[in-house]
Design a binder for these strands. Structure first.
Length: 139
DNA sequence: TAGGCCATCTGGTCCT
DNA sequence: AGGACCAGATGGCCTA
């Protein structure tokens, strides 16, 4: 990345960068200073780590998987959370307590009626479509 | 080695 | 004006 500011967080390197930056735009009227840019970077970093990622972690804890501590990517967390909500909603209105994939048979997991509970198994088989793709369409 | 995932930087837009 | 939020770009790491 051509980061002319090249600011390193956790220290006062922005001061050095002000001195060392040789390609600052000539029109500096509206351009942020090196210090402002580094401060904005730090805020964005903090927001990503302490707000976005913590929210993902909190959401991850609510999604049942096998094994429970299985690593999920962010997109998996979002997709599984959606399918899990759909599953719980279905339970609420139908009273059906079995997980969707077991209502029929395990083979269904490989086809259309995918659920949160068997997602880890399916992933091993290189599934590319999101879980519960057809299940969600019922709502 | 290619592809997926992630962290970070950056600039734009919106909000207070 | 400054901060929050967002999306695009980029580079690093990991795995099949």
């Amino acid at each position: 990345m051509d980061n002319f500011l090249n600011c390193h967080y956790g220290d006062d390197s922005w001061e050095r960068n002000i001195i060392n930056s040789i390609s600052l735009p000539t029109n500096v009227e509206a351009a942020p200073t090196a210090k402002q840019r580094c401060q904005a970077n730090a805020r964005e970093r903090d927001r990503t780590q302490n707000s976005v990622n913590m929210a993902f972690n909190a959401l991850r804890l609510l999604i049942p998987t096998e094994p429970p501590d299985r690593k999920l990517s962010k997109i998996e967390i979002l997709r599984l959370a959606g399918s899990y909500i759909t599953h719980l909603d279905n339970q609420l209105y139908t009273g059906e307590m079995e997980q969707p994939c077991l209502q029929k048979n395990n083979l269904s997991c490989k086809n259309t009626s995918l659920c949160t509970f068997c997602w880890s198994t399916v992933k091993k088989e290189k599934l590319t479509t999101p879980p519960h793709s057809s299940y969600e369409k019922q709502y």
